[in-house]
Design a protein around this nucleic acid. Structure first.
Lengths: 113, 113
DNA sequence: GTCAAATACATCAGATTCTTATGTATCTTT
DNA sequence: AAAGATACATAAGAATCTGATGTATTTGAC
């Protein structure tokens, strides 16, 4: 099963930040593969969604980049900046909180009027 | 704290369906208030987001409507159709599954290479 | 009794963000 | 030599939310 795309909306940035926090530096393609692997193919980040997101993180100063050549092929590594680390903590705890709230909402049985 | 709007994206439809499943019938304004109340103001559904969503659910045959007059003021009640009940089960279990996956992703510490 | 706030519907321009191509190029495996 | 994987990037179109605006009634406070 692959999650419907709407579900992933809004969590992509947080996922990317969290992965970078755990892995020091990663490049785009690696991120797509890692997420696919960690989620047993349930979350497949497309490149069309990922690259604009990475560029936005860079524009916001949350990540820094360094380019490396593997043979003749370029590889662009992303790392969290100090403000990126803070942002990651915020986003992750917000998402954790949100999930608690959603869990509660989904379990509601009573007609609390 | 109010969740960032991106987070709520993708879950709105599921929230509405679940509320309708638990409450037989509800009207739009009531849904916004109930969600606000149940989530201690953390999730505030705007009318600009809710009404188009309700209309879409109706167009998809997932809900049926009945109009009632309270004094001179109209009130539009929404109820799940049979296919809406099935859809709700699907969406809720998908979201539950997704949350498990996200929980796992957010806890990742190892550099599993 | 009147004025603000709450109730209740609805629409829409603009913003955001994802999907689905498309493009370019290199490296690896068969 | 060809196919598939690696690796970047952009862009038109679709979907969906924000925030504003509009209309109208009812309730509560002073």
């Amino acid at each position: 099963m692959i999650y419907s795309s709407e579900l992933i909306k809004g969590t992509l940035k947080t996922i990317v930040l969290k992965l970078l926090a755990d892995n020091k530096k990663m490049y785009g393609y690696e991120i797509t593969q890692r997420v696919k692997e960690l989620t047993l193919d349930k979350i497949q980040i497309t490149e069309g969604a990922l690259y604009p997101t990475l560029h936005a993180l860079e524009d916001d100063g949350l990540v820094t980049t360094e380019t490396e050549f593997i043979g003749k092929r370029v590889r662009k590594y992303y790392s969290l900046s100090p403000s990126g680390k803070n942002k990651t903590k915020e986003k992750v705890s917000e998402l954790a909180d949100f999930m608690e709230t959603m869990k509660f909402l989904l379990d509601i049985k009573t007609k609390s009027v």
